[in-house]
Design a protein around this nucleic acid. Sequence first.
DNA 1: ACGGCTTGTAATATGATATATTATAAGTAT
DNA 2: ATACTTATAATATATCATATTACAAGCCGT
Lengths: 145, 145
Amino acid sequence: MQITSRFTIAVHSIALIECNRDMKVTSNIIAGSTNVNPVIVRGVLSQLKEAGIINSRQGASGVTLAKPLSDITFYDIYEAVDSVKDEGLFHFHEHPNPDCPVGRNIHAATDERLRQVQTAMENEMKKIRLSDIIDDIRREIGAGN
Amino acid sequence: MQITSRFTIAVHSIALIECNRDMKVTSNIIAGSTNVNPVIVRGVLSQLKEAGIINSRQGASGVTLAKPLSDITFYDIYEAVDSVKDEGLFHFHEHPNPDCPVGRNIHAATDERLRQVQTAMENEMKKIRLSDIIDDIRREIGAGN
DNA sequence: ACGGCTTGTAATATGATATATTATAAGTAT
DNA sequence: ATACTTATAATATATCATATTACAAGCCGT
Protein backbone atom coordinates (compact mmCIF):
# COMPACT_ATOMS: atom_id res chain seq x y z
CA MET A 1 0.00 0.00 0.00
CA GLN A 2 0.89 3.59 -0.26
CA ILE A 3 0.77 6.95 1.39
CA THR A 4 -2.49 8.66 0.45
CA SER A 5 -2.63 11.12 -2.42
CA ARG A 6 -3.90 13.63 0.13
CA PHE A 7 -0.23 14.30 0.78
CA THR A 8 0.65 15.30 -2.78
CA ILE A 9 -2.65 17.15 -3.08
CA ALA A 10 -1.62 19.23 -0.08
CA VAL A 11 1.83 19.97 -1.51
CA HIS A 12 0.27 20.92 -4.82
CA SER A 13 -2.25 23.18 -3.09
CA ILE A 14 0.40 25.07 -1.15
CA ALA A 15 2.47 25.53 -4.29
CA LEU A 16 -0.56 26.89 -6.09
CA ILE A 17 -1.40 29.32 -3.29
CA GLU A 18 2.17 30.62 -3.24
CA CYS A 19 2.52 30.94 -7.00
CA ASN A 20 -0.72 32.92 -7.18
CA ARG A 21 -0.21 35.10 -4.13
CA ASP A 22 -1.60 38.09 -6.00
CA MET A 23 -5.01 36.57 -6.73
CA LYS A 24 -7.62 34.80 -4.68
CA VAL A 25 -7.01 31.06 -4.76
CA THR A 26 -10.24 29.20 -4.10
CA SER A 27 -10.78 25.51 -3.42
CA ASN A 28 -12.37 25.24 -6.85
CA ILE A 29 -9.28 26.65 -8.51
CA ILE A 30 -7.16 24.12 -6.61
CA ALA A 31 -9.57 21.36 -7.59
CA GLY A 32 -9.13 22.45 -11.20
CA SER A 33 -5.35 22.42 -11.06
CA THR A 34 -5.05 19.13 -9.19
CA ASN A 35 -7.96 17.49 -10.97
CA VAL A 36 -9.28 16.27 -7.67
CA ASN A 37 -12.83 16.55 -6.40
CA PRO A 38 -13.48 19.95 -4.73
CA VAL A 39 -14.85 18.33 -1.57
CA ILE A 40 -11.68 16.32 -1.15
CA VAL A 41 -9.62 19.44 -1.70
CA ARG A 42 -11.60 21.30 0.91
CA GLY A 43 -11.07 18.40 3.29
CA VAL A 44 -7.32 18.58 2.80
CA LEU A 45 -7.37 22.37 3.16
CA SER A 46 -9.35 21.97 6.33
CA GLN A 47 -6.65 19.74 7.78
CA LEU A 48 -3.91 22.13 6.70
CA LYS A 49 -5.80 24.93 8.41
CA GLU A 50 -6.12 22.93 11.60
CA ALA A 51 -2.36 22.38 11.51
CA GLY A 52 -1.78 26.11 11.23
CA ILE A 53 -0.33 25.92 7.74
CA ILE A 54 -2.96 27.94 5.90
CA ASN A 55 -5.65 30.48 6.69
CA SER A 56 -9.25 30.45 5.52
CA ARG A 57 -12.58 31.80 6.65
CA GLN A 58 -15.96 30.33 5.90
CA GLY A 59 -17.62 32.48 3.30
CA ALA A 60 -14.54 34.58 2.61
CA SER A 61 -13.10 33.67 -0.74
CA GLY A 62 -9.52 32.51 -1.02
CA VAL A 63 -6.96 30.63 1.02
CA THR A 64 -3.62 32.05 2.19
CA LEU A 65 -0.46 30.68 3.72
CA ALA A 66 -0.15 31.04 7.48
CA LYS A 67 3.62 30.82 7.64
CA PRO A 68 6.73 31.19 5.50
CA LEU A 69 7.34 28.40 3.01
CA SER A 70 10.70 27.68 4.57
CA ASP A 71 8.92 26.86 7.83
CA ILE A 72 6.76 24.18 6.23
CA THR A 73 8.32 20.75 5.79
CA PHE A 74 7.07 17.58 4.14
CA TYR A 75 6.68 16.19 7.61
CA ASP A 76 4.36 18.98 8.70
CA ILE A 77 2.10 18.22 5.78
CA TYR A 78 2.33 14.48 6.20
CA GLU A 79 1.26 14.87 9.80
CA ALA A 80 -1.45 17.38 9.01
CA VAL A 81 -3.25 15.26 6.42
CA ASP A 82 -2.60 12.02 8.35
CA SER A 83 -1.57 10.26 5.21
CA VAL A 84 -0.87 7.15 7.16
CA LYS A 85 -3.25 7.19 10.10
CA ASP A 86 -2.40 6.75 13.71
CA GLU A 87 -1.61 3.05 13.59
CA GLY A 88 1.69 3.69 11.85
CA LEU A 89 3.24 2.98 8.50
CA PHE A 90 3.21 -0.78 8.87
CA HIS A 91 0.13 -2.92 9.02
CA PHE A 92 0.53 -5.82 11.41
CA HIS A 93 -1.47 -9.02 10.99
CA GLU A 94 -3.82 -8.50 13.87
CA HIS A 95 -4.25 -11.73 15.76
CA PRO A 96 -1.07 -13.79 16.09
CA ASN A 97 -1.76 -16.96 18.03
CA PRO A 98 -0.99 -16.44 21.74
CA ASP A 99 -0.65 -20.19 22.23
CA CYS A 100 2.46 -20.20 20.03
CA PRO A 101 5.72 -18.90 21.53
CA VAL A 102 6.53 -17.03 18.33
CA GLY A 103 3.00 -15.74 17.86
CA ARG A 104 3.00 -14.54 21.44
CA ASN A 105 6.25 -12.60 21.16
CA ILE A 106 6.46 -11.43 17.57
CA HIS A 107 4.92 -8.07 18.33
CA ALA A 108 7.34 -7.27 21.13
CA ALA A 109 10.25 -8.30 18.92
CA THR A 110 9.31 -6.23 15.86
CA ASP A 111 7.34 -3.18 16.96
CA GLU A 112 10.37 -1.16 17.97
CA ARG A 113 12.12 -1.88 14.68
CA LEU A 114 9.10 -0.96 12.60
CA ARG A 115 8.93 2.26 14.57
CA GLN A 116 12.60 2.84 13.85
CA VAL A 117 12.00 2.53 10.12
CA GLN A 118 9.07 4.89 10.22
CA THR A 119 11.10 7.40 12.22
CA ALA A 120 13.88 7.33 9.62
CA MET A 121 11.30 8.16 6.98
CA GLU A 122 9.82 10.95 9.02
CA ASN A 123 13.21 12.46 9.74
CA GLU A 124 13.94 12.60 6.03
CA MET A 125 10.63 14.36 5.50
CA LYS A 126 11.61 16.97 8.04
CA LYS A 127 14.57 17.91 5.87
CA ILE A 128 12.46 18.90 2.89
CA ARG A 129 10.98 22.38 2.91
CA LEU A 130 8.17 23.62 0.72
CA SER A 131 10.40 26.50 -0.32
CA ASP A 132 12.61 23.91 -2.04
CA ILE A 133 9.65 22.68 -4.06
CA ILE A 134 8.47 26.14 -5.06
CA ASP A 135 12.00 27.10 -6.10
CA ASP A 136 12.03 24.12 -8.42
CA ILE A 137 8.63 24.90 -9.87
CA ARG A 138 9.66 28.50 -10.53
CA ARG A 139 12.85 27.27 -12.16
CA GLU A 140 10.85 24.97 -14.42
CA ILE A 141 8.43 27.73 -15.36
CA GLY A 142 11.32 30.11 -15.97
CA ALA A 143 12.87 27.54 -18.29
CA GLY A 144 9.73 27.61 -20.39
CA ASN A 145 7.98 24.59 -18.94
CA MET B 1 -2.46 3.96 3.86
CA GLN B 2 0.00 1.47 5.10
CA ILE B 3 2.51 -1.13 4.17
CA THR B 4 0.72 -4.44 3.66
CA SER B 5 0.52 -6.99 6.45
CA ARG B 6 2.22 -9.36 4.03
CA PHE B 7 5.42 -7.87 5.35
CA THR B 8 4.85 -8.77 8.98
CA ILE B 9 3.41 -12.11 7.94
CA ALA B 10 6.69 -12.83 6.18
CA VAL B 11 8.77 -11.83 9.19
CA HIS B 12 6.60 -13.96 11.44
CA SER B 13 6.90 -16.92 9.08
CA ILE B 14 10.67 -16.78 8.98
CA ALA B 15 10.83 -16.53 12.76
CA LEU B 16 8.59 -19.56 13.05
CA ILE B 17 10.64 -21.59 10.61
CA GLU B 18 13.82 -20.77 12.48
CA CYS B 19 12.43 -21.43 15.95
CA ASN B 20 11.16 -24.81 14.85
CA ARG B 21 14.15 -25.87 12.79
CA ASP B 22 13.88 -29.39 14.20
CA MET B 23 10.36 -30.07 12.95
CA LYS B 24 8.60 -29.69 9.63
CA VAL B 25 6.99 -26.26 9.43
CA THR B 26 4.08 -26.34 7.01
CA SER B 27 2.08 -23.46 5.59
CA ASN B 28 -0.84 -24.58 7.72
CA ILE B 29 1.24 -24.36 10.87
CA ILE B 30 2.28 -20.85 9.87
CA ALA B 31 -1.32 -19.98 9.12
CA GLY B 32 -2.21 -21.18 12.60
CA SER B 33 0.47 -19.12 14.32
CA THR B 34 -0.18 -15.95 12.33
CA ASN B 35 -3.93 -16.41 12.23
CA VAL B 36 -3.89 -15.60 8.54
CA ASN B 37 -5.58 -17.54 5.79
CA PRO B 38 -3.42 -20.45 4.55
CA VAL B 39 -3.69 -19.37 0.92
CA ILE B 40 -2.37 -15.93 1.78
CA VAL B 41 0.47 -17.51 3.75
CA ARG B 42 1.36 -19.71 0.80
CA GLY B 43 1.32 -16.66 -1.44
CA VAL B 44 3.78 -14.90 0.84
CA LEU B 45 5.95 -18.03 1.09
CA SER B 46 5.90 -18.27 -2.67
CA GLN B 47 7.28 -14.75 -2.95
CA LEU B 48 9.93 -15.45 -0.32
CA LYS B 49 10.93 -18.51 -2.28
CA GLU B 50 11.20 -16.56 -5.49
CA ALA B 51 13.45 -14.09 -3.68
CA GLY B 52 15.72 -16.93 -2.58
CA ILE B 53 14.93 -16.53 1.09
CA ILE B 54 13.27 -19.89 1.72
CA ASN B 55 13.13 -23.34 0.11
CA SER B 56 10.05 -25.38 -0.63
CA ARG B 57 9.02 -28.14 -3.00
CA GLN B 58 5.54 -28.88 -4.21
CA GLY B 59 4.27 -31.94 -2.40
CA ALA B 60 7.21 -32.11 0.00
CA SER B 61 6.11 -31.09 3.43
CA GLY B 62 7.84 -28.23 5.21
CA VAL B 63 9.58 -25.00 4.40
CA THR B 64 13.20 -24.21 5.23
CA LEU B 65 15.42 -21.16 5.23
CA ALA B 66 17.65 -20.74 2.20
CA LYS B 67 20.25 -18.52 3.86
CA PRO B 68 21.56 -17.47 7.26
CA LEU B 69 19.28 -15.21 9.26
CA SER B 70 21.99 -12.60 9.45
CA ASP B 71 21.89 -12.35 5.65
CA ILE B 72 18.19 -11.51 5.57
CA THR B 73 17.23 -7.90 6.18
CA PHE B 74 13.87 -6.19 6.51
CA TYR B 75 14.54 -4.70 3.11
CA ASP B 76 14.96 -8.10 1.48
CA ILE B 77 11.58 -9.13 2.78
CA TYR B 78 9.95 -5.82 1.96
CA GLU B 79 11.17 -6.16 -1.60
CA ALA B 80 10.23 -9.82 -1.85
CA VAL B 81 6.61 -9.43 -0.82
CA ASP B 82 6.27 -6.10 -2.67
CA SER B 83 4.54 -4.55 0.29
CA VAL B 84 4.30 -1.29 -1.55
CA LYS B 85 4.07 -2.11 -5.22
CA ASP B 86 6.19 -0.76 -7.99
CA GLU B 87 4.70 2.72 -8.06
CA GLY B 88 6.49 3.68 -4.88
CA LEU B 89 5.57 4.61 -1.35
CA PHE B 90 3.71 7.77 -2.27
CA HIS B 91 0.52 7.93 -4.22
CA PHE B 92 0.40 10.94 -6.52
CA HIS B 93 -2.89 12.44 -7.60
CA GLU B 94 -2.84 11.23 -11.14
CA HIS B 95 -3.97 13.98 -13.47
CA PRO B 96 -2.69 17.43 -12.53
CA ASN B 97 -3.95 20.00 -15.01
CA PRO B 98 -1.32 20.55 -17.74
CA ASP B 99 -2.85 23.94 -18.57
CA CYS B 100 -1.78 25.27 -15.18
CA PRO B 101 1.91 26.15 -14.67
CA VAL B 102 1.93 24.53 -11.25
CA GLY B 103 -0.07 21.50 -12.37
CA ARG B 104 2.31 21.07 -15.27
CA ASN B 105 5.47 21.12 -13.15
CA ILE B 106 4.49 19.72 -9.77
CA HIS B 107 5.60 16.23 -10.68
CA ALA B 108 9.07 17.29 -11.78
CA ALA B 109 9.44 19.35 -8.62
CA THR B 110 8.44 16.65 -6.15
CA ASP B 111 9.23 13.22 -7.57
CA GLU B 112 12.88 13.31 -6.66
CA ARG B 113 12.12 14.31 -3.09
CA LEU B 114 9.52 11.62 -2.63
CA ARG B 115 12.06 9.16 -3.91
CA GLN B 116 14.57 10.50 -1.42
CA VAL B 117 12.17 9.87 1.46
CA GLN B 118 11.45 6.37 0.30
CA THR B 119 15.16 5.67 -0.05
CA ALA B 120 15.78 6.81 3.52
CA MET B 121 13.16 4.35 4.68
CA GLU B 122 14.61 1.54 2.62
CA ASN B 123 18.11 2.20 3.88
CA GLU B 124 16.90 1.92 7.45
CA MET B 125 15.29 -1.40 6.57
CA LYS B 126 18.60 -2.67 5.25
CA LYS B 127 20.10 -2.18 8.71
CA ILE B 128 17.70 -4.59 10.41
CA ARG B 129 18.55 -8.28 10.20
CA LEU B 130 16.20 -11.14 10.92
CA SER B 131 18.78 -12.49 13.34
CA ASP B 132 18.08 -9.42 15.49
CA ILE B 133 14.40 -10.28 15.59
CA ILE B 134 14.96 -13.93 16.44
CA ASP B 135 17.39 -13.00 19.18
CA ASP B 136 14.71 -10.87 20.74
CA ILE B 137 12.07 -13.54 20.46
CA ARG B 138 14.38 -16.09 22.09
CA ARG B 139 15.12 -13.61 24.83
CA GLU B 140 11.40 -13.10 25.47
CA ILE B 141 10.75 -16.81 25.51
CA GLY B 142 13.72 -17.35 27.78
CA ALA B 143 12.29 -14.73 30.14
CA GLY B 144 9.16 -16.79 30.44
CA ASN B 145 7.01 -14.98 27.89
C1' DA C 1 -30.53 43.40 2.39
C1' DC C 2 -30.37 40.43 -1.26
C1' DG C 3 -28.18 37.15 -4.47
C1' DG C 4 -24.39 34.82 -5.77
C1' DC C 5 -20.41 33.07 -4.40
C1' DT C 6 -17.51 30.94 -0.97
C1' DT C 7 -15.96 27.64 2.90
C1' DG C 8 -17.29 23.74 5.60
C1' DT C 9 -19.37 19.08 6.36
C1' DA C 10 -22.53 15.23 6.43
C1' DA C 11 -24.15 11.34 4.00
C1' DT C 12 -23.81 8.29 0.40
C1' DA C 13 -21.81 6.04 -3.79
C1' DT C 14 -18.10 4.37 -6.35
C1' DG C 15 -13.78 2.10 -7.02
C1' DA C 16 -9.65 -0.06 -5.84
C1' DT C 17 -7.32 -3.43 -3.44
C1' DA C 18 -5.93 -6.56 0.44
C1' DT C 19 -7.37 -10.47 2.63
C1' DA C 20 -10.46 -14.60 2.91
C1' DT C 21 -12.54 -18.48 0.84
C1' DT C 22 -13.50 -22.23 -2.30
C1' DA C 23 -11.83 -25.29 -5.49
C1' DT C 24 -8.59 -27.90 -7.81
C1' DA C 25 -4.12 -29.36 -9.81
C1' DA C 26 0.00 -31.66 -9.02
C1' DG C 27 3.81 -33.51 -6.32
C1' DT C 28 5.62 -36.33 -2.20
C1' DA C 29 5.84 -39.96 1.01
C1' DT C 30 4.38 -43.63 3.76
C1' DA D 1 -3.18 -46.03 -3.37
C1' DT D 2 -4.12 -42.84 0.08
C1' DA D 3 -3.38 -38.96 2.71
C1' DC D 4 -1.08 -34.90 3.02
C1' DT D 5 1.49 -31.28 1.06
C1' DT D 6 2.67 -27.11 -2.05
C1' DA D 7 0.83 -24.17 -5.57
C1' DT D 8 -2.43 -21.30 -7.84
C1' DA D 9 -6.81 -19.79 -10.14
C1' DA D 10 -11.19 -17.76 -9.43
C1' DT D 11 -14.29 -15.56 -6.66
C1' DA D 12 -16.15 -13.24 -2.46
C1' DT D 13 -15.78 -10.15 1.28
C1' DA D 14 -14.14 -6.10 3.72
C1' DT D 15 -11.96 -1.99 4.11
C1' DC D 16 -10.91 2.43 2.92
C1' DA D 17 -9.75 6.42 -0.34
C1' DT D 18 -11.79 9.23 -3.46
C1' DA D 19 -16.00 11.05 -5.81
C1' DT D 20 -20.49 12.82 -5.62
C1' DT D 21 -24.68 14.93 -3.94
C1' DA D 22 -26.71 17.90 -0.84
C1' DC D 23 -27.01 21.47 2.20
C1' DA D 24 -25.69 24.75 6.07
C1' DA D 25 -23.50 28.95 7.14
C1' DG D 26 -20.71 33.04 6.23
C1' DC D 27 -18.79 36.84 3.18
C1' DC D 28 -19.24 40.59 -0.05
C1' DG D 29 -20.40 43.53 -4.08
C1' DT D 30 -24.24 45.54 -5.95
